[in-house]
């Protein structure tokens, strides 16, 4: 119970403080309970708890189709993740290159790719190619370009945070600057920036839902169609929200494990603060 925040932001509570805390907790909880209760009451008033609205999701056929829709989302996400890691590494290499021209090109591309919304990038492929690019690839390419630019910045920050000695040691044993980057710096940058990289991957997964707006049949679209078909839109959205949140939490949990294993193999100081701050960049 002696977590440091307790001991720093406020006193170990005495009897009066404890009473006050208890009162505040009760008030806070009551207010929140009121909000939650109001939502539940609204749901009840609209008949959203009737079993018939939820029962479709207990059937095996529906679950199979739900899983198939989830897989469509995952296909977009996985392809986009793989491609944006490649693009990110290439752009990062460009930005860290010894050639000034290359650095400038890479910097321009990074700015260009991450300034417009992902949705607009998807529309670039959708409208720009006059429907000649399948929706799947419009979604994947839009996500790749946008997130590739963000991954490039994360990797660059990781490389720049490495002690100079790493690059110098590499150069001293006769590696070219390119070899130093790809075999010494980038692998360590990936390890030290893993938390930021993972939050970016979660961003990609969430942003696959934008493909719904350009008309691709993925999880969100399935949820909306199922909800319209069975007249249970709210339960349908709640079910797919649970699937999204669950998937993202599994990814984050896996990343934690990976992080613990990998963080020992980097010369960079792992700074969780920097990582959390970075995560916000990518909503």
């Amino acid at each position: 119970m002696s977590s440091r925040i307790d001991s720093v932001l406020y006193d170990a509570p005495g009897p009066r403080a404890r009473r006050l805390n208890a009162v505040l907790t009760v008030v806070g909880v009551l207010v929140i309970a009121a909000v939650v209760g109001w939502v539940v009451w609204k749901l009840e008033a609209a008949g959203q708890f009737s079993a018939s609205l939820w029962s479709p999701f207990t059937y095996s056929d529906i679950q199979t189709q739900l899983a198939a829709a989830w897989w469509e989302t995952m296909k977009v996400a996985l392809t986009a993740i793989a491609l944006s890691i490649v693009l990110g590494a290439v752009l990062a290499a460009g930005r860290l290159s010894t050639s000034a021209a290359l650095r400038r090109v890479a910097a321009t591309l990074v700015t260009l790719f991450r300034t417009p919304p992902v949705l607009l990038l998807m529309f670039w492929f959708f409208y720009g190619a006059r429907g000649q690019i399948p929706l799947f690839w419009c979604a994947v390419l839009g996500l790749t370009i946008y997130n590739g630019a963000f991954l490039a910045e994360i990797l660059r920050a990781g490389v720049q945070a490495l002690p100079k000695g790493q690059a110098e040691a590499g150069l001293a044993i006769g590696l070219t600057p390119g070899q130093v980057l790809w075999t010494v710096q980038l692998p360590q940058a990936v390890r030290s920036m893993l938390p930021s990289l993972v939050s970016q991957i979660v961003v990609i997964l969430k942003d696959t839902a934008l493909a719904y707006i350009i008309g691709y049949s993925e999880l969100l679209r399935w949820g909306q169609q199922a909800g319209s078909f069975y007249f249970n839109l709210i339960p349908a959205f709640i079910v797919i929200a649970v699937v999204y949140v669950g998937t993202n939490m599994v990814i984050s949990a896996l990343a934690k494990v990976l992080e613990r294993r990998m963080s020992t193999h980097t010369a960079a100081r792992v700074t969780p603060q920097a990582a959390t701050a970075q995560a916000g960049a990518a909503a």
Binding site: I62, Y230, G246
Partner: peptide, 17 residues
Amino acid sequence: VATALLALSACGQEGSP
């Protein structure tokens, strides 16, 4: 994660509603 799995697994019924 547990919630998600619970929702996916399910008190299953065969076929379509």
